Simulated scan of single mutants.
Amino acid sequence: MSETILVTGAAGQLGQRVIHHLIETYNVAPGRIVAATRSPEKLSALEDKGVVTRKADFDDQAGLEKAFSGVDRLLIISTDALDTPGKRLTQHKAAVTAAAKAGVKHIAYTSMPAPDDSLVTFAPDHLGSENTVKASGIAYTIFRNAWYHDNYLHGMPHNLQGGKWYSATGDGKVSTIARDDCALAIAAALASRTSESATYTLTGTASLNNRQIAAIVSEAAGKPLDVIDVNDEQLGQGIRGAGLPGFVADMLVSADANIRAGKFDIVTGDFTKLTGKQPQTLKDFFVAHKAALTAAGSH
């Protein structure tokens, strides 16, 4: 009997790609996949492919238990409730409790690198969630996804327009990975039917500092980019001045501080172990997304 795999956050960017790779790369029958989200009406395209869709609201534990019924393997994609510290942890605890009650046999969870030694504002939520999964007694796979290449697409077009990148990472290095590569590795593990518990840290093959990253962006976009070193306070003021909410500013400042402290300077071979492939380099990612990098009028 083949396993039933449920993916939460199925309307989100990572969830969509995990389901894509389960079907297209690892040939999992769509009827064995359950796509769950707060708004299942957003999943009509998956439904058309034969994927089962269910409503899953992380603030409704009874509803989660119902959604998880008959599921063998559950992927909890960490929720987007970042505005309130601790809210994600509460939501993830509800999901793990519901999974145990529903008889789920294996729980997978998307975390971050080294959440036990991190300056990032949301690290405690991830660490607490990992510990909750482990304490459930259910077999688990934890995916500690490195900072995505994709995250640079938010600020870099604006940086390139002015030719300046304000950074508080100092000489610190970070190893980043494409979101789609994380999805590929997660799908590989979900499709593997493993009953072992394991933790994987999904990173790129190189760790780079802000000067090296700026040179790669500049070459891919064909525009000059200078790094301007700032401190945490200056960075936070600049981000708030651009109109972003305070919790986003705090999160981005904490991420730069984490890089500066060397805590994101982690390179593993876990992606290749799971997929047998090499992850997309930052250079190749930027070349593939040149249009987004050089789009005028972006913020």
Rank of each mutant, 00 (worst) to 15 (best):
V7S: 03
T8Y: 01
G9L: 01
A11H: 09
G12M: 03
Q13H: 14
V18A: 02
L22R: 00
E24K: 14
T25L: 07
Y26K: 06
A29M: 11
R32H: 14
A36Y: 04
S39V: 12
E41M: 09
V51L: 04
F58Q: 07
D59H: 14
L64A: 06
E65H: 05
K66Y: 10
A67R: 02
S69W: 01
G70T: 02
G70M: 02
D72F: 01
L74N: 02
L75I: 10
A81S: 15
L82G: 12
L82H: 12
G86C: 13
G86T: 11
R88Y: 09
R88P: 00
R88F: 09
H92N: 06
A94R: 05
A95C: 10
A95D: 00
A95P: 02
A95R: 03
T97A: 15
A100F: 10
K101V: 14
I107T: 00
Y109S: 00
S111W: 07
S111C: 07
D117T: 14
D117L: 10
D117C: 12
V120L: 11
H126S: 08
H126L: 07
L127Q: 13
S129G: 09
S129T: 13
E130W: 05
S136L: 02
G137H: 09
I138K: 09
F143D: 04
W147Q: 15
W147F: 15
D150E: 08
D150L: 04
N151E: 13
N159T: 11
L160W: 03
W165N: 09
Y166R: 11
G172S: 09
G172M: 05
V174C: 06
S175L: 03
D180W: 01
D181N: 15
C182G: 02
A187F: 00
S192P: 07
T194A: 13
S195N: 13
E196R: 12
E196V: 07
Y200E: 06
T201V: 15
T201M: 00
L202I: 05
L202Q: 01
T203N: 05
T203F: 04
T203H: 01
G204P: 04
S207T: 10
S207W: 04
N209L: 00
N209C: 05
N210V: 14
N210G: 13
R211L: 12
I216W: 05
S218I: 03
S218K: 01
E219M: 10
L225T: 02
V230H: 03
V230C: 11
E233C: 10
L235E: 04
G236C: 11
R240C: 05
R240A: 12
G243M: 13
P245W: 02
G246W: 13
V248R: 00
V253F: 08
V253E: 09
S254P: 10
A255F: 13
D256V: 07
A257N: 08
R260C: 12
K263P: 06
F264I: 06
F264Q: 15
F264T: 08
T268R: 02
L274N: 03
K283W: 00
D284G: 11
F285N: 04
K290D: 09
A295T: 08
A296M: 12
G297H: 05
H299V: 12
H299T: 13
H299A: 12
